[in-house]
Amino acid sequence: MIRCNAITKRFGSFAALHGIDLHVRQGEFIALLGPSGSGKTTLLRIIAGLEFQDSGQVLFADEDVSKRNVADRHVGFVFQNYALFRHMNVAHNVAFGLSVRKGRDKPSRAAINERAEELLRLVQLEGLGARYPSQLSGGQRQRVALARALAIEPKLLLLDEPFGALDAKVRKDLRRWLRDLHKAMGLTSIFVTHDQEEALELADRVVVMNEGRIEQIGTPEEIYMNPATPFVSHFVGETNRVGQGGEELHFRPHDTALVSQGGEAVLVDNVFRKGGVWRIEGILQTQQILVEIDLDAASTPPSLGEIIQIRPRQFRSFNQAGAQIKGEPQ
């Protein structure tokens, strides 16, 4: 459905994207995940036509749209801070995309109003059409922005940090709701986020980006359980990193077991309850670095100052070039 071929983009002397290849299938829900400056928003904007790549192509259903401007690409775009038109009421905001159509394409006033009502119903804001954006809560504004984007009946929905400006509780509710909407409407959606939890929870596939490159594309399961690069391993989920003779050993706190002997010695520095587990912070004695270990909440945690022996149940090790090396637990 959407294909990006070798897309590069520079802003002055700053290279924002180096040769991005990405294929998004019909009906997929894709997350672009990465730290700020990783190029994820730039990629999203290039797909939308808000920014133009220096080289490479963007294809919608095998048609090259690289030169087509944003107004003709027909994509729904939800902006980070919603970008609602504050001098228009909610209904006019939603109807905007229909009312700027020209000639024969322009629906009648009644049809536009009806469609706006319908969309407001869809995003559960029925009856709020006469309000102005400043009179709505953050979550409501977000839904107006979504309804406005959906009004032009896009096949592709792009969302830039859609939940960034919302507080934690609202964010969680909206996430689930967006997921359902995506399915119900048969959309293809791409959203940008720096929040790994959001990406892993919502997306069919996650695209992890760093410094203008794609580090890994995979299902949440693959990304979490089998990170392809040290960056992904470190950025997604919590990871202990221990250097070992030119290699770097990565293991998750919850993949670590206490052993009675033959493990690595760790001096317990802090113990606290973290959700359903005990979180142990300790100093790995051989290297004097901090490691984090999760233990079953039902077990008795070690006491402060105690030296415990640990052993990763699962780990990945990477050489200096970042390539993964198969290995057995030591």
Partner: peptide, 12 residues
């Protein structure tokens, strides 16, 4: 972003 929003919605 407000102008961009208008453009994504098809406004000239």
């Amino acid at each position: 972003d407000v102008e961009e929003a208008a453009a994504t919605l098809g406004a000239s």
